[in-house]
């Protein structure tokens, strides 16, 4: 090959050996190298030189910790150490779906329990009302009006059967930690518990009915107080209403 044609290529060999030749020139040189033995020999020398340049830097030891780090990445170390939990997208999506299902189920259970509680309360309310209606039809049943601090209602008293039915409007709703407790009031001021009730927030009135084991005619009145959930042995909380027989 004439020297004139050869020159541009041979001049680019040092830069090519260093990896610094621009792409277009590099491509042209590579084509030339396929057919030019002398340029290939020249490149061999410059390539050895460029490799020499990599080694021509005074050695510097890395910190000892690097060897340990590297060792920890080898298979024997990986077998000994527990594998970190790595989830694929599918596993992550599955876990998310299971999580959502668990939450939905928990919500459904909560909702069902709430409905059951509501149903039990409504059923109790219905029974109270039926008892009260039955009482009304009996002769000798006393009907007493309630009108205390904005709370109105009716108290039905059947002394023959020791039955009591209380209807009250606008009773303030209570938190779960509190309950209403009904007391019979004796002539000496003693109190006997008749029972507990909790107003249903969805209804505007509350009814409470009971057939007492006590002889009602021995008592002079009835009172309702707010007590801790579960009731008290004697009145401790705010008195809500009192009805004299």
């Amino acid at each position: 090959m004439p020297l004139k044609e050869h020159t541009p290529f041979i001049e680019n060999i040092p830069a090519y050996a260093l990896g610094s030749l621009d792409a277009e020139d590099a491509s042209a040189l590579e084509n030339h190298l396929k057919t030019c033995n002398s340029c290939r020999s020249e490149l061999t020398v410059y390539r050895a030189m460029s490799e020499g340049l990599l080694a021509a830097i005074p050695p510097k030891s890395p910190p000892a910790s690097l060897r340990r780090q590297l060792q920890s990445k080898l298979p024997s170390a990986r077998r000994l150490s527990p594998q970190p939990l790595r989830w694929s997208w599918n596993q992550f999506a599955l876990a998310f779906a299971v999580g959502v299902l668990v939450l939905l189920n928990a919500f459904s259970v909560f909702q069902m329990q709430s409905l059951q509680r509501q149903q039990a309360q409504l059923s109790y309310q219905l029974q109270s009302e039926q008892t009260a209606l039955a009482l009304l039809s009996y002769p000798g049943v006393k009907t007493l009006a309630i009108n205390t601090d904005g709370i109105t209602g009716t108290l039905l008293l059947d002394e023959d059967r020791n039955a009591v039915a209380l209807f009250a409007w606008n009773l303030p709703p209570l938190p779960d930690s509190r309950t209403y407790q009904v007391w019979l009031i004796g002539a000496q001021g003693e109190r006997v518990s008749l029972g507990l009730f909790h107003p249903e927030p969805s209804l505007p009135f509350t009814s409470f009915s009971i057939i007492s084991s006590e002889n009602i005619s021995n008592f002079v009145g009835l009172g309702v107080t707010v007590e801790p959930s579960g009731g008290s042995s004697h009145p401790t909380g705010t008195r809500l209403l009192t009805v004299n027989f």
Binding site: L54, I57, P58, P59, K60, P62, R67, L74
Partner: peptide
């Protein structure tokens, strides 16, 4: 792995000097 670490011990200072440069 022992052969690998032997090569590391032999050449890590060369490799590290270059990467640091």
């Amino acid at each position: 792995e022992k052969a690998f670490l032997a090569l590391y011990d032999r050449y890590s200072s060369r490799v590290h000097a270059l990467t640091l440069r």
